[in-house]
Design a protein around this nucleic acid. Sequence first.
RNA 1: GCGCCUGUAGCUCAGGGGAUAGAGCAUCGGACUUCUAAUCCGAGUGCCGCAGGUUCGAUUCCUGCCAGGCGCGCCA
Length: 558
Amino acid sequence: MSIVLQQKEQLSSAIYRALEAARENGEMELNEIPEIGLEVPRDTSHGDFASNIALITAKAARKAPRDVAQIILSNLDQGNFIRKVEIAGPGFINFFLSNDWLYDTLRAIEAQGGKYGDSDYGKGEKVLWEFVSANPVGPMNVVNARAAAVGDTLARMFKAAGYDVKTEFYVNDAGNQADIFARSLEARYQQINDANYPFPEDGYPGDYVGEIAQILYKEQPDLLQMPKEERLEFCKKWGTDKMVDMQRADLKEYGVEFDLWFRERDLHSANDLERVIEFLEERGFLFEDEDALWFRSTEFGDDKDRVIIKSDGTYTYVTADIAYHHDKLKRGFTKLINIWGPDHHGYIARMKAAIQAMGYPEDTLEVMILQYVALLRNGKQVKMSKRAGEFITMQDLVEEVGKDAARFFFLNRSPESHLDFDLDLAVEQSSENPVFYVQYAHARISSIIRQGVEMGIQVPASKDVDLNLLQHESEIALLKQLSGLPEELLMGAINREPHRLTRYALDLASLFHSFYTHCHILGEEDSLRASRLVLVTCVQIVLKKVLTILGVEAPEQM
RNA sequence: GCGCCUGUAGCUCAGGGGAUAGAGCAUCGGACUUCUAAUCCGAGUGCCGCAGGUUCGAUUCCUGCCAGGCGCGCCA
């Protein structure tokens, strides 16, 4: 249990006992004692912890909130950890504790290192995070970049929260788009020898198709010997594999490495679609109408039934997706979390229906809908069209603003908010980007420790220093911030809020920079210097931990 | 028409049943003989989209409306 939680528990049981005592001695009538809420107030003048219990119970007790608070106080056993209690505002009870718990936080960080802040909340539940899953027919876009950053970070937050996590990229290499891509690639290949060879009307116009056609030509100069059908099949497989390789490389450069890459074509070759259709058929969820086979998804709350096999005998996209999710479940995952773009939100109901038809609870599948990213240049939105071959790719973005800045920028916003990404601003102010502010704090600490070592000063163990020397306002503020990591990490995972962590990192960096200005370290006398070295080392550990989860570098110097 | 998301400071965005609504950027003024000034300290700004409702208390929850983005295929 985190130290903050320990404090809250101590306080709430003290309040509970006070309420019971008040009830017994007749000072207060109260049938039920509600759950006692405690929070860390934003304003430090409101204490270390505050409770609104008096406001909540006032009505049932038929007393004014401040009177209730006064009764609680007069029955409260302050023990030896509560330094001061006061009633404030409409009836809040503010608790001021002795600093021992803050110093315990340093000991915990020292003992746990990079694991500080982790919990076993998830109890090892197997969770699969699927995100990006961009079609292997072109470069990834900025929404993919947003999804990559969010998914990658949330997956790590889940690991920290005690889940058994895998990340997966689903490759749509078997559908219409893959066929169109194959025809586009084949046409570009033909054009190497015959400039007038017709390009398909619906083909992908981007230059990249021609570029990889060149690579294909070098590797396979005799492709034209093949029968057309066979050649298109080859182009589809080779081409989508090539695109997947490129996507994998781009993602790696962006700091995202998936545990698993799942190919749609493997579902087809393993006859998984037939199998899942049979499975649903047996359970009576399918019916025929107008020469097509339908899935009765309305039985599970979808607003329409969905076609599974089209009248021409081919499958729809959702069929493969059902088979895919069936496969995920067969692999033993009990929680499937997908991150989709806003254009797919209409898909949620039918996939959840499928999950239920397969016999699993509706909330086994959770879909996070990420909102769009609008790119602005010269104050105007950049119009992008895959059709016209005009778009700013993830790769362009990373090259332009850098991996760390791009990731931080995406992660610093709540996933469901629409996002305006001003390219001019991102480039122009790249040296003032918040990410550097956080990294600079880490580099500064590294520098202090480095110089200490040069002077023959090592970072001491906390047991060998007097942590009580840490009394400065900026030191206390830092300690409080450090104590908050476990809760931030856990709440961030539970609520799927990566931006909690960027915010936490910014706040921690800010408090450190302020401390740095007000307090010196290496020049201080031995005992104070030792205590502060312990403190900044803990700040460094926590900064590095958070940056690692965010997928951002923690530089030793800048 | 139905569904999802958004509406908070000049801009980009946090927050969220409670105590004076926050940060960064931008603007203005200070701080480097001292561990990195990519830093710090200080200053101003808000019908929290509008209107009702629930509540001791609503910017937060509920309903309706307005505005913007995106969906609603035997496409993927």
